[in-house]
Amino acid sequence: MLIIVLFAFTILVFGFKYGASDKDNELVILAASSLTDSFAELAQAFEADNPGIRVKLHFAGTQKLRTQVEQGVQADIFAAANQRHVQALVEQGLVSQPQVFAHNWLVLVVPEDNPAGIKTLKDLVKQHRLVLALPEVPVGSYSRQVLQKVEEDLGNNYAAKVLENLVSEETSVRNVLTKVALGEADAGFVYGTDLHSDLQDRVLAIPVPRKYNVQAGYYITKLIGSDSAAAQLFIDYVLSRKGQAILSGYGFQ
């Protein structure tokens, strides 16, 4: 019996400790995977400028973070890599009106030794091992939009031919990059900003021409349940000249 009581007690104590937090000085931010490096630096700079506030960052695919918000996760801010998922949350009354804070573009990446010899988007119809993110992941849907745009120009069933080479659908943009950097995949679409990560030396980037590219808008918003005063402070910081300078350092526009 004693053991059970101790067990229950432990759960209660730790539950409180990690569940509820001191709202006044803690800020929980849910951010898209592609913001991993830039938001880490933003949070650090924000903490330095606002002593006493601690920022906790959770990174995952935008679609996954959306599900977490729908399931009632305790957080203050949501930074998403596309509009669709944020808009769905606005309609459900879970977040306030979002603001665009950055833009990103897609690039095609191949391993540095480029075993499949892919030099342009046209080469993607050749047999190779293509890795994309799932269609629900923002970068996965943008990648398919790029293929559609190329098809409108070239015709010839381009998109379907390219997708025949698809060997895996990853759950985040970082997983796509890793598979290419390891040389397991021959090609994949990631954001231009992902090339500012540790893996950049192991891949070659092939720019996607403007007329085919898709501009990815990043949206930031406050969760309705959040009563943190620091939330607005952080959003303002991201939109400020200082915040924007940090973001552009990672290739955001």
Binding site: Q63, T67, V131, L134, L166, V167, E169, E170, T171
Partner: peptide, 23 residues
């Protein structure tokens, strides 16, 4: 093995994938 329907997407991977869109 990666995650592709019919080739490598087994039941546990299908659960994980469906969680992204279709609970």
């Amino acid at each position: 093995a990666g995650n592709l329907q019919g080739v490598t997407r087994t039941l546990p991977l299908a659960i994980y994938t469906a969680m992204e869109s279709d609970l």
